[in-house]
Design a protein around this nucleic acid. Sequence first.
DNA 1: TTTATGGCTGTCA
DNA 2: ATGACAGCCATAA
Length: 114
Amino acid sequence: MSRSTRASGAGAYARIYAVVRRIPRGRVATYGQVAELAGLDGHARQVGYALHALRAGSAVPWHRVINAAGMVSPRAVPGAELTQRQLLEREGVGFDLRGRVRLSVVRWKPRESS
DNA sequence: TTTATGGCTGTCA
DNA sequence: ATGACAGCCATAA
């Protein structure tokens, strides 16, 4: 890091992972929400990239992070969204007929002690 | 260094 | 309610 340490540095990733890791099972959070909690308020996209950088085996439940529409993003890799959906369903997250979750119900609420 | 792309979001029709 | 467009910004090449 020759460049000075700033909020938008590589440390941002660790912060994002920390937030995602805090998401309890059976609950989901939107990219924008995670970004805000990670201090990257407004940089929802950055969260998506950080999660994309993760690899299988990471302790980060990336599948619990979805977009503001309440559904998994149609990533470049076909089938991946189905995998995320299955993981969520396995945790008790109910999906809509259109493949959307009820954010009003499964939306993770930080602050409150689970 | 610049260029191109992207796991989004919010607004308008 | 859904569908389409533009904007923002960091990462990777």
